[in-house]
Design a protein around this nucleic acid. Structure first.
Lengths: 157, 157
DNA sequence: TAAGATTGAATTCTCAATCTTA
DNA sequence: TAAGATTGAGAATTCAATCTTA
C-alpha cells in the first residue's frame, strides 16, 4: 500500500488528537480552578503575566497582542473590561501619538500575586508532576520547532 | 538556593508557554485556512470528525460532548446552528426517551470530505513535517499521561 | 429525584468599519 | 496612504434555569 497522505497515520493521529484533547481539558480545568480561587479568568491571568513579565509592567498594545496571539480587537475589548475592573490602565504613548501603553495597576498586581501561587501549583500538579525532564524538554523543543515553522511560513520568501 | 515552588522552573516555563503559544497560533492558523478553503469552522470540523469516526456517523449527544470536551450547552447551541445549515440532523433515541442522536447528513459528509484533504495537508505541513517519529510519540505519550492524571483527579479516590 | 438535553440571558470573541496620527 | 488602536454589530460561548423522561 502506498501511504495515504489524505489523513494522518495512526501514530500522528494519536499525537494530534492527544494534543488537542489535552489542551481543551487542561484549559477548562485551569480556568475553573482560577475562577474558584480568584476573580480572574484565564484570559485575565495571561494578560497580567504578559505585562508583569516586563520592566515597569507596561507595554505597547500591539506588542502585547503579538505576545498573546490575540486578535487586536479581542485584546482591545478585553483591556476595556479589565480597565473597568481596575486591573490595568491605559496611558498615552509620548513617542507615537497613535500608540497606547497598558500598565498593571496596584490592584492588578495584587490580584496576580494572590492567584499565581495556587495556579502554578495546579499546573505543576496536573502537568509537570507526570512528566520527567526529557519529556519537558521534548515539549519545549517541539513548540520551538513548530513556532519557527509558523513564523517562516508567515512571511513567505 | 531552595527550589521555588511558587513558579515554574525556566525549563518548565519554556515548555508550558511554548505549549500554550503553539496551540494558540496553530488553531488560529488552521481555523483561518479551513474557512478559506471551505464553509466550515474548526469547531464544525471537529464535530464532523467525531461523528464520521463512528459507524453510521450517528452518536448520542452526551457521548459526542464527552469526546469533544465541550460544555453540553455549547454543543447543543452548535448543533442547532449546524442543523440549520443542513450539516447534521437530530434524531430521537428509541431506547431512552430523554436522549437524542445526532447524524451527519449527506451535505455534512460532502463538506468534510471536500475539506479534509487540504486541512490534513496543512496540519502535516505546519506540524508533522518538523517533527521526527520519536517527537511524535513523545507528544502522544505526554498527552496520554496528562489526560490520565486529569481523569484520576476528576473522581478523587 | 436524577439524567439527558435544550433554552435564554449575559459574557466574550470575531469581523469589518472607523478614527487619529505618521 | 498606511499604522496603531478602538468601536459596534453579529457570532460563538458560558452560566443558570428549565423541560421531559427514567
Amino acid at each position: 500500500m502506498t501511504p495515504d497522505t489524505s489523513w494522518l497515520s495512526a501514530r500522528e493521529q494519536r499525537a494530534w488528537r492527544g494534543f488537542l484533547h489535552m489542551h481543551a481539558e487542561l484549559t477548562a480545568r485551569l480556568g475553573r480552578h482560577l475562577q474558584a480561587i480568584s476573580e480572574l479568568s484565564l484570559a485575565d491571568f495571561e494578560v497580567l503575566v504578559a505585562l508583569t513579565d516586563v520592566p515597569e509592567a507596561r507595554r505597547r498594545v500591539l506588542e502585547l497582542g503579538r505576545d498573546l496571539q490575540w486578535e487586536k480587537s479581542r485584546l482591545s475589548h478585553h483591556l476595556t473590561r479589565m480597565e473597568k475592573r481596575g486591573l490595568v490602565a491605559r496611558e498615552e504613548c509620548p513617542s507615537d501619538g497613535r500608540g497606547a501603553f497598558v500598565v498593571v495597576t496596584d490592584a492588578g498586581r495584587a490580584a496576580i500575586d494572590a492567584a499565581a501561587p495556587a495556579h502554578v501549583t495546579e499546573v505543576r500538579r496536573l502537568v509537570f508532576d507526570v512528566l520527567d525532564a526529557p519529556a519537558v524538554d521534548a515539549l519545549g523543543d517541539m513548540a520551538e520547532r513548530v513556532l519557527a515553522r509558523l513564523d517562516e511560513d508567515e512571511c513567505p520568501g
